[in-house]
């Protein structure tokens, strides 16, 4: 929980401000039997007493706009305050450029808050100007490369305003900083899925890219998941791409026992069985062996899951009368 800080010297309570003496503060009405009563600071109570008064009267004024700033500072997750602030901005015809700067400063303080990012999005929609969004989100991702809110805002801006041009470079730089950053892998998928498309050439290029990354960190689930994701778009399927299957068998032969490699080979086996394309490497027996190895040695925490998959392969034999080598 962030500190809802309110310790500034020289602060004047709203109740002591002459320009607010026409307003009767509205205390929070918890009814006759209050529960979950929060011990707010005196400043918090004061600001929100006046916020409720303004809200009740539906006053649309400059001083109300200033008041919402104080209310946001005390609790930036108060969606009612943000919503009212947006109504004020519209009504007062406030300069939205300065509002962009303001919300940017709040985002810097509370980067993991639904309301601030939503406010930003509405402003960009109103202005129809996404020119700062890539920089803003890049900055937030510099501090926290997996910040979900920042990624979501970035995707929205890119998709709405077709800002795909340099996104793969951005993803590349994040992946070279941290090849295990799953959010960056997801963004890579997002760009191809919405922009580049899944032409055969592109699929093969992405496969090569991913295999290169797996070569130096084999235990990286993000890369393996991405590989499986792009193979969904390979017409030959997960078992039909010779480059991928050869790569996996080479790793296996070189004693790599990353659970993600073994799991991947199991998926290859499964698809080969379903398509009646089993061979010496990819068949029911191999799949069952790998499940057992994972359950008992390489991935014990998931023992139940691997035994469940093993049983399922057992059933393939019964159902299809499959002959495995």
């Amino acid at each position: 929980m962030s500190d809802c800080g309110d310790s500034d010297a020289g602060w004047i309570f709203y109740k002591d401000r002459p320009d607010w003496n026409d307003i009767k503060p509205v205390p929070e009405d918890d009814g006759i039997t209050p529960v979950v009563v929060i011990a707010h600071s005196e400043k918090f109570e004061d600001v929100y007493d006046y916020f409720r008064a303004i809200l009740q009267k539906d006053e649309k004024s400059q001083r109300a706009l200033e008041l919402t700033k104080d209310a946001v500072e005390l609790n930036s997750a108060n969606y009612t305050v943000w919503q009212y602030r947006r109504e004020l901005l519209k009504e007062l015809g406030t300069d939205l450029r300065s509002e962009l700067d303001y919300v940017e400063s709040v985002i810097k303080i509370s980067p993991k808050n639904y309301q601030v990012w939503h406010h930003r999005r509405v402003l960009v929609e109103w202005l129809q100007d996404p020119s700062q969004e890539l920089d803003l989100t890049a900055e937030a991702l510099l501090h926290d490369p997996k910040n979900y809110h920042a990624w979501q805002h970035r995707q929205w801006a890119i998709k709405s305003f077709r800002l795909y041009d340099k996104e793969i470079e951005f993803v590349d730089s994040l992946l070279s900083d941290d090849v295990r950053n799953n959010s960056a892998w997801n963004q890579r998928y997002f760009v191809h899925n919405n922009h580049t498309g899944w032409s055969d050439m592109n699929v093969q290029r992405e496969i090569c890219y991913t295999l290169e990354k797996i070569k130096f960190v084999k235990n990286n689930e993000s890369a393996w998941n991405y590989l499986r994701g792009i193979l969904l778009h390979d017409k030959r399927g997960i078992n039909g791409n010779g480059v991928v299957t050869a790569f996996c068998e080479e790793l296996y032969k070189n004693r790599c026992r990353s659970p993600f490699l073994l799991a991947f080979i199991i998926d290859v086996c499964e698809e080969a069985i379903k398509k009646n394309e089993t061979n010496g490497f990819h068949n029911v027996e191999r799949a069952k062996e790998l499940c057992t190895a994972l359950a008992t040695k390489y991935d014990k925490i998931r023992e139940k899951y691997w035994m469940y998959l093993r049983d399922r392969f057992e059933m393939y034999v019964c159902v299809n009368g499959e002959n495995s080598q």
């Binding site: 529960v35 011990a39 918090f44």
Partner: peptide, 14 residues
């Protein structure tokens, strides 16, 4: 907690 919460819960006032 069901009755009273400390001031750091102000962030959950909404």
């Amino acid at each position: 907690w069901l009755m009273h919460l400390p001031g750091n819960y102000s962030c959950l006032d909404a």
